[in-house]
């Protein structure tokens, strides 16, 4: 009975995963037959300034998007967990970005950020009416903001669920001890959310390695190479320059880093996390 699942997963997931390692040692233009070239791709890719820059940008995006999304999601999650009626209404509205595909959000933001006919022009604020996407110094920050717009709703949902599971008795006890709101937050809410924080952070960090569609549609990696993070570098190398060997090297790096980060954070959080998180779904 497990055969169909194993066959499909094997052929279309495991074989490609091994294939990407093999292809990273081959030269292939996407049309003919791949030819074995040994470590040539690796040497070429790892000394390519474009790829090195992509690594730097990926690191920046990973750290900066975590620094932006994690506190905002946490704060919103705590806020959404409140039982007040207006917060329930707000929670419904917060959910709306999740209805957008990455492509849809990126296209909407391209229009919204237009310096002449977009939001900035409408509000008459010159500071907002910049060429956000065309300016290499700004484009990366725009990308980070739009990523946040798309993904904060998801993570705040995780935090909302986490906060609602904190036993009320903890807060009652703290109240009796005279702890204020801020103290309650730092001494009860935050420690109790430990596993949610780890789960959410893992998803954010591993997700940073896979942001493709959003950036592809929003900036295409540009202007120049200003937003060309590793997944884009991989796509552009493979399907624009038809250098599949180089694309495969980048893919192997992505897999190794992705697996490494998830395993490290998983160990950090305890192996039983998945099981215990499933309770109560």
């Amino acid at each position: 009975m497990a055969a169909p699942a194993l066959a499909l997963f094997g052929v279309f997931a495991v074989v490609p995963l091994l294939g990407v390692l093999v292809l990273s040692f081959m030269s292939w233009d996407g049309l003919g037959d791949p030819v074995w070239t040994g470590a040539d791709n690796w040497g070429r890719t790892l000394s390519d300034p474009v790829t090195l820059n992509a690594m730097r940008l990926t690191a920046i995006v990973t750290v900066a998007s975590w620094l932006f999304q994690a506190p905002v999601s946490l704060l919103l999650g705590v806020f959404m967990a409140g039982r007040q009626r207006y917060r329930a209404v707000l929670s419904v509205l917060y959910f709306l970005p999740l209805l957008f595909s990455a492509a849809a959000a990126a296209i909407a933001y391209r229009a919204l950020l237009d310096p002449n006919f977009g939001l900035g022009a409408a509000l008459g604020i010159p500071l907002l009416a910049q060429d956000w996407i065309g300016n290499p110094d700004l484009a990366l920050w725009v990308v980070l903001f739009v990523i946040g717009w798309c993904f904060v709703p998801f993570h705040s949902l995780l935090y909302q669920g986490g906060v609602r599971q904190i036993p009320a008795s903890l807060y009652e006890a703290a109240l009796l001890d005279g702890a204020g709101r801020v103290q309650q937050f730092f001494h009860i809410t935050l420690p109790q959310l430990k596993y949610t924080i780890i789960t959410s952070s893992t998803l954010m960090i591993v997700g940073s390695l896979t942001y493709f569609d959003l950036i592809f549609v929003l900036t295409g990696g540009g202007p120049g190479n200003a937003t060309r993070i590793l997944p884009l570098d991989m796509y552009l190398a493979g399907f624009r320059s038809y250098d599949m060997g180089r694309a495969s090297v980048i893919a192997v790096i992505l897999v190794v880093v992705g697996l490494g980060v998830s395993l490290a954070l998983n160990r950090f959080s305890g192996a039983s996390r998945m099981e215990s998180q499933m309770e109560g779904v």
């Binding site: 490609p16 995963l17 990407v20 997944p231 991989m234 796509y235 493979g238 599949m244 893919a251 897999v255």
Partner: peptide, 8 residues
């Protein structure tokens, strides 16, 4: 990461 297997 699904993206990483796109070439194969």
């Amino acid at each position: 990461p699904i993206q990483a297997t796109i070439v194969p």
